[in-house]
Design a protein around this nucleic acid. Sequence first.
DNA 1: TCCTAAGCGAGACGGTACGTCTTGTCTTCCA
DNA 2: TGGAAGACAAGACGTACCGTCTCGCTTAGGA
Lengths: 194, 194, 194, 194
Amino acid sequence: MKKSDRRIQRTRQQLSQALIALTLEKGYEAVSIRDITRDAGIGYATFFRHYPDKDTLLIDVLNAFIQELKQLFAQSAEPSPAAEGALIFAHVRQQRDLYRILLRGQGTQAILNHIQEITAREFLAIYAPKPDSPIPPDVAANHVAAATMALIKWWLDHDMPYTPAQMGLIYSELIIRPTQAIAFTPLPQPTALH
Amino acid sequence: MKKSDRRIQRTRQQLSQALIALTLEKGYEAVSIRDITRDAGIGYATFFRHYPDKDTLLIDVLNAFIQELKQLFAQSAEPSPAAEGALIFAHVRQQRDLYRILLRGQGTQAILNHIQEITAREFLAIYAPKPDSPIPPDVAANHVAAATMALIKWWLDHDMPYTPAQMGLIYSELIIRPTQAIAFTPLPQPTALH
Amino acid sequence: MKKSDRRIQRTRQQLSQALIALTLEKGYEAVSIRDITRDAGIGYATFFRHYPDKDTLLIDVLNAFIQELKQLFAQSAEPSPAAEGALIFAHVRQQRDLYRILLRGQGTQAILNHIQEITAREFLAIYAPKPDSPIPPDVAANHVAAATMALIKWWLDHDMPYTPAQMGLIYSELIIRPTQAIAFTPLPQPTALH
Amino acid sequence: MKKSDRRIQRTRQQLSQALIALTLEKGYEAVSIRDITRDAGIGYATFFRHYPDKDTLLIDVLNAFIQELKQLFAQSAEPSPAAEGALIFAHVRQQRDLYRILLRGQGTQAILNHIQEITAREFLAIYAPKPDSPIPPDVAANHVAAATMALIKWWLDHDMPYTPAQMGLIYSELIIRPTQAIAFTPLPQPTALH
DNA sequence: TCCTAAGCGAGACGGTACGTCTTGTCTTCCA
DNA sequence: TGGAAGACAAGACGTACCGTCTCGCTTAGGA
């Protein structure tokens, strides 16, 4: 039980790494399953014993990545949006390969939508909506999530011309503060207690 | 010369409409070139006499659409961002099918990027950057374009729960006004001259 | 030692019976080794510890059958060819399932050839060739073996429309007697001694 | 219409010849469709535009061969069985490759049965059954067909140790004459008229 | 009016990826 | 320690699609 499980894990690991390497090399769509198995040193048919699809493998890879992301945010409740943003962009720089696949890729739309929803929900859970705002809270939360991802994408597409700290400031001034000002109560509840 | 040109136009028209119909029916990726030609009543090989790719046909379809969009904006220089936004969302509602293909689709990332760039450039051409802003003007312009597209997408994904006028207000308050306030001079130059 | 031998015998027995059942169900070629092991309630890899091949298992099955056949002929030295033939066809009727696999099957050619050779050799051992015959004795013996098998096959393919006694007569008149008359001395040696 | 038909014929011709060559080289079963297309210089997928199966291609090849065979027999109504037999064996020697595939092969059982039936029917059409014979005419016809094929097989398996004329005599004495004597009227009707 | 050129329908073809199937090897687990 | 369980490599199978090509029909716009 244990040993064979470890072998399975290893096989999947090899497939995941091959997918990442090949996707960065020539784009997700252009990678065939044969490429992946050849690169991973795995039998072609074996691929289908683990994943029904190329997409499913990608989702598997990115899910692991999302878990990592969640942990990052769970650990650090930064006081200021700018500091929080700096943290985000530092993480992006560290994992730029995966972020590039995620944000530039053709077959990642579904995953991006998923991440965007999660992020928006997280945001809504932290900040309290302003009662008399003309902006519905879910619209505002969606805005924050989408705009943040767009900002990350711009940064990566332009080869990270600013430091994470600078990007954190932009993130704060362009996205968080205006949205918070117009759609949410000034003081976020949980961080206020810190 | 004239008649044969008209025939060519008609063939391309049929291909375009078949692509739109089939894409709405089962998604862009799932549509094969054989599907398109069958649906259009066109010989299979004839497709390649007009377009090298399925993507190229899509670009052709969407370019015509962008032209229409540009004309819309050229005609109306609305005084307030909210009114301008209302106009945009009214247009979206009218052409919701094409917008859905564009924003939800898997193979439209490249076109979306292109549109986003055009929009950002347009925005930069209209508004003058504030000299001492912490936000670089191209970042701000990119933010406006991306956030607008995300807002349209949210609206369509949620089946247009607000009126175009309400969306115009949200667009103004959430995107245009904050960005303008922090990154651009208060009065846009061209409209000031009107 | 004894116990494990018995266990091995039992495993092989199960495999043999599964092969026979499945072959009758959907034909020898269509039966895969996985089918056999599943049907026999045996581990897939275990098959290969007993037989290298599906064909080898079949040979094993049929060899046991041939042994039985030989014993039948050893016991009874019938005086007339017609009586001998009746005996043969009675046996065929009894074991018609196995004979059908053997004679109709796609993968049994090699075994059939083997049986044919044995039969021809047996025939040559019993009858003395006529010196001045235009027919070489091995040709004649091969003829007897092949024609007998073809006759059995015809009988089974047509659902045994005649009794074993009738078939025995046909066998005698159509195959044995003419061949004996032209290629062998009138009185077979061993039966003459009885 | 004509030109494309000719092209199709050429493609099938190439596939047929590749199948024959490869089958003689390593046996019918061991030949894969990829082998055939590679050897024929034909695209892999193209194979399936012509034949659903490897078996179907084989049947096609052998059917053409059977047509040739039929013509051979239609042309020449030889007076004596021995002469007729000599003709048959001369033809076998000429086409020994195809006969070997046919008679030794694993996937040719169905075709062989078909040929055997045709031959038997032909035989029945030529000779008139004897009314009081203990041998049913269809049994006798089947015997002739099967025994003839077995004789050819023996000859080829033993590398044709006798001349076609000798084999014709054997064929006549061992198969035709005895069967005719016991199951059919002495003078065949059609040849009697010649 | 004829006739040459172009658009087109039809479809054969080479090529390649897909997902399924089977075979035989090997390794781990269990009684 | 021998058999069960099953992961795996290898590779054939039949299907689907792509893009190229060639053929022949029809219709056009110029001679």
